[in-house]
Design a protein around this nucleic acid. Sequence first.
DNA 1: CCAAAAAACGAGCGAGCGCTCGTTTTATAC
DNA 2: GTATAAAACGAGCGCTCGCTCGTTTTTTGG
Lengths: 256, 256
Amino acid sequence: MTLARTGGKRMDSLREFQARFDLSMEALCARILDRHAATIRVKKPAVAVANLARIVETTLTLANRKGFHSMSLRELAEQSGLSMGALYAYFDGKDTLLMMILGQVVGAVEEVLGHPPEDLAGDPVGRLRWLLAAHLYLTETMHPWFVFAYMEAKAFSKEGRDLAVANELATERLFAGALEDGVRGGLFAVSDVEMTAGLIKPLLQDWYVKRAKHRKRGVTPERYVEAVIGFVESAIGLGRTVEKPTVGTGENASAA
Amino acid sequence: MTLARTGGKRMDSLREFQARFDLSMEALCARILDRHAATIRVKKPAVAVANLARIVETTLTLANRKGFHSMSLRELAEQSGLSMGALYAYFDGKDTLLMMILGQVVGAVEEVLGHPPEDLAGDPVGRLRWLLAAHLYLTETMHPWFVFAYMEAKAFSKEGRDLAVANELATERLFAGALEDGVRGGLFAVSDVEMTAGLIKPLLQDWYVKRAKHRKRGVTPERYVEAVIGFVESAIGLGRTVEKPTVGTGENASAA
DNA sequence: CCAAAAAACGAGCGAGCGCTCGTTTTATAC
DNA sequence: GTATAAAACGAGCGCTCGCTCGTTTTTTGG
């Protein structure tokens, strides 16, 4: 039961996804360092990345527990093991810290979802599945980052909010693109592509926004991916008899 | 095209919903006054309700713009036209103000969704449609209240969070109940009722969480209800040929 | 081993917070 | 018209916030 492919290799599980994309805290903080080299006053990259990791890790924990605004920098200093002054060698204000994290979330989305494997270019069913699975595994891997970006959105500056909205719409466009291709090829029965794409998004977001609930029910990422794929494909007319017969791709969904 | 019934009267539009349920600011604040009569020091109900309305209205506006914690009581006093001291005649602390609003949201959900029209008791399709429509019209009518409850959830006290979680699960149980009945009657093809109910919830929540996006696209509440009903019914095997033929109810969905 | 550079430290600052309470204003009753 | 109760007022309290900066500690290179 192949869910989606990425560059010739299958992506059937969270483990395979994580093997393909390095989304470790160190890798992500290294990119934050690149992006904000101008404001970070610490010279040695190894030191900077290590401390950024502690700062970001602690920030995500505290902010996701009580909200970014309610988290004080004194608390961040204490929990992260750094001093107030040391923190200000890594950012020039609380808002910058927030934008560092948001920027990396947006960057990861673009990097992962922006380039689906080329061999799925002519395969709308496979591409849709790949997008659903990749989105879910991405948010699972960077769970606290996405919860942070989602919940603190209203606290963003104008540029931050615009960035978040643009990113969300871009993701929806990817879904809509796969749907359009499928409709054109007679694979999907969708009357309003934009609306349908807009309904898919919250299904995926629910995984990380309400992850505690799903976990309590014993639902794994893999099972949730399958449920969403089954639900969506049923809704758009796949997985059962459709007016126009399926062509080419084979590999239909099984269950919801 | 009847979407849902409530006590013999149809509920095809937001207008009809609002005619059946009094969810005006005054009615809601009157119930808040009842609930918190012990802590509110203002004696005359007319005065108390009028000022509560100003307080709640302003709180929802400010909190939904910048977050409840970032909103100061001085700002609330200024914007609502009351003084700092006057505010404390209506609540004994900022947290109590938050719980007043949350409590009324939970109360409204129970009141509206808790008692579906009796003539839908034996009609899973109609009851599911009624639940979807009622949920959406409820959140549309009390939009800022629901955004507040959703976004400030993590700022709640333990009892507040437990209340919110219990409320969410109760709502999902209503969906699951209709789904179970439909599966038992051979109307729906659903392999995991609990999971499916869990996927319906975020579709409805997206309406109020991202309402600005939907509004910008020109989507009305009525159109969104229809889209969700169509999407869900397709996903659970209604609206097209199913293994077991539909019995009794008639009235199938039309489009997504 | 030691000076210079890099990094970390943490008390202290002004501002703004939630909240209080002595006072003033407004509504009510005879 | 005035005495009393009800409601509103808003300066001020103690506290914590984001942020700064003079100082101390650690790392580096010859």
